[in-house]
């Protein structure tokens, strides 16, 4: 039922900010809904685009694509809602899927996973350090590459890699895999 207008993604230009908003709204909004739930997401996304517009003069296309840059801005804003995020994760644990029975395209992609894994996995993500969680979710949910995450968060490529492997090791351990300390060596 949901459609978005067909449009060309802006060619890494902020001149037409309305086109930037149209092109990236759905994706950025979905990412924030996943992390914070639908209610807080609207405030955060509104603030993110207004922030982006205010800071557009500081955007450097040589460093990051517009999409990457927007993920960086919105990730910073998500930090103000850490408690909401943790609560959302723990609610996943109680309610099953955090979303209102997805439909259409979403449903095709989303697999209903083994219910028994949910509590441990959600708890493990809730317990990750902020930086680890950002890198994990920008990878898993937003599909950003190491380079893009480094640019979005203003950290080095190496830090992205080490945070991601720490996050993965902790999750593996929480799901009954290997000890995170050992996994770091492997």
């Amino acid at each position: 039922m949901t459609t978005t207008p067909v449009e060309r993604p802006p060619d890494q230009s902020l001149d037409d900010f309305s086109a930037v908003f149209d092109a990236y709204f759905s994706e950025i909004h979905r990412y924030v809904v996943q992390r914070l739930g639908p209610g807080p997401a609207e405030d955060v996304v509104a603030e993110a685009f207004l922030t982006a517009f205010r800071k557009r003069a500081r955007y450097d296309p040589a460093k990051a694509g517009v999409r990457t840059w927007l993920y960086g801005i919105v990730t910073n804003l998500i930090h103000k809602h850490r408690r909401t995020e943790v609560r959302t994760l723990r609610a996943v644990d109680r309610h099953g899927p955090p979303v209102d029975a997805p439909s259409h395209e979403e449903r095709v992609a989303a697999q209903v996973s083994a219910e028994s894994l949910r509590p441990a996995l959600a708890e493990a993500i809730a317990r990750l350090g902020r930086g680890e969680r950002d890198v994990l979710l920008l990878t898993a949910l937003a599909g950003l590459s190491h380079e893009e995450i480094a640019a979005a968060l203003g950290i080095s490529y190496g830090t992205v890699g080490s945070r991601l492997s720490r996050a993965r090791a902790k999750i593996r351990a929480a799901l009954g895999g290997t000890n995170p300390m050992e996994a770091n060596h492997g």
């Binding site: 949901t2 979905r30 979303v99 997805p102 992609a109 979710l137 949910l141």
Partner: peptide, 12 residues
Amino acid sequence: KVRELYGRPDDD
């Protein structure tokens, strides 16, 4: 597993 946990929210 992380992706499946989060699912894909319905586009509102």
